[in-house]
């Protein structure tokens, strides 16, 4: 039994089966991501002042990822063109290039962007007095005399580009964010927070807080206010902080000159920038995570198309194989397009 139109176009529709199939699949994908984008709009419009964390993303990293995805969209077209020109070696080259670009995208996302957020905490306070103590401390290590102006500009930068909500949120509900570089236990001893099992900085994001922090041995936290967001001249640079997390004795990030000690009883809520942190981060991880799974799926399909069995298919039925690469390319353009929407709504707007 032979299914008709698997490689040749049906005369009256002008399409082969795979092309109809992939366009229908993409239509359903549009509805999937459409629903998530709608959820983003509805949640963002309905969010309370001071809860939608804009301006936290490193837009240059996002821009880099956007560029390599666009480049990979070009290279997969070149792979398909090579097949149409009957040049299988060139197809292999461009297919591998696409896979390398796609893998770079995932490496940036999963080994840098996400883990960096998992080690980045923010703290809100039980009382305005406690908040004032912590913010004054942060101002002192940053070398400024009055924290109010710095707080206002960094808060507006993060939550409120239209500069209208600063007075609507109490000081205790404004987060102080930074990296946890140490803690003081109930006996008064100071400990540093370092790498677990010698795995660098993101290991404590997953392990330390589920062990030490969850077991409530902590009396006070030692926090290095974040330079990224807390726009102050003398705060520790993020690189220094991360090195300090991994190798606490090597650098001075846990030095009192760079850190603030916050008693546990002052803390209303401590959360890293994980999905649970806020609806913004929930949306961020869900959207980028689902997109990243699509990238991963694309990589797997592209690797499959490099297997020997597919070379045999190419020799047997070149049109059919080229059709599969075309369908993969259409899927890949869609994945690229989704990212082109994700980049502005999560990094820029």
């Amino acid at each position: 039994m032979e299914i008709p139109y698997t490689s040749k176009d049906r005369p009256d529709t002008g399409l082969y089966n795979g092309k109809v199939g992939i366009w229908l699949f993409l239509a359903s994908e549009v509805m999937l991501f459409g629903a998530l984008f709608s959820a983003y709009v509805l949640l963002r419009v309905g969010s309370d002042p001071g809860t939608w964390s804009l301006g936290l993303m490193n837009k240059w990293v996002g821009a880099f990822n956007t560029l390599i995805l666009i480049a990979s969209s070009v290279t997969i077209v070149l792979a398909w063109v090579s097949l149409k020109l009957k040049d299988f070696a060139k197809y292999r080259f461009w297919q591998w290039t696409t896979i390398v670009f796609a893998a770079m995208f995932l490496v940036v996302k999963w080994s840098y962007e996400w883990p960096a957020k998992f080690t980045h905490y923010d703290v809100t306070f039980k009382s305005n007095e406690a908040a004032e103590r912590a913010f004054s401390g942060a101002a002192r290590v940053a070398g400024i005399t009055n924290f109010t102006d710095t707080l206002k500009s960094s808060w507006q930068n993060r939550f409120d580009p239209r500069k209208q909500d600063f007075d609507k949120v109490e000081l205790k509900d404004k987060p102080l964010d930074g990296h946890i570089v140490g803690y003081i236990d109930e006996a008064g001893h100071e400990h540093s927070v370092g790498a677990v099992l010698n795995i660098p900085f993101w290991s404590h994001a997953f392990i330390w807080r589920t062990t030490t922090l969850a077991k409530k041995k902590v009396k006070s936290l030692i926090l290095a206010p974040s330079h990224d967001i807390w726009h102050a001249p003398h705060a520790a640079a993020p690189g220094v902080v991360r090195v300090a997390e991994a190798h606490p004795s090597a650098h001075g990030a846990s030095h009192p000159a760079h850190t603030v000690t916050i008693p546990r009883e002052d803390i209303q809520r401590l959360s890293s920038f994980e999905p649970k942190h806020s609806t913004f981060f929930a949306t961020y991880y869900t959207l980028t995570g689902l997109h990243a799974l699509h990238v991963l799926g694309g990589i797997i399909v592209m690797l499959y198309h490099l297997l020997p069995c597919n070379h045999r298919l190419w020799l047997r039925d070149p049109d059919r194989f080229a059709g599969r690469i075309e369908a993969t390319g259409l899927f890949w353009h869609f994945v690229d397009l989704v990212w082109i929407f994700l980049f502005p709504i999560l990094y820029l707007l």
């Binding site: 229908l24 239509a27 359903s28 994908e29 509805m31 999937l32 459409g34 629903a35 959820a39 869900t286």
Partner: peptide, 12 residues
């Protein structure tokens, strides 16, 4: 094809 994906998104 078009109505189920939003529930899939909601399910996620």
């Amino acid at each position: 094809l078009l109505a189920f994906p939003p529930l899939e998104a909601a399910g996620v």
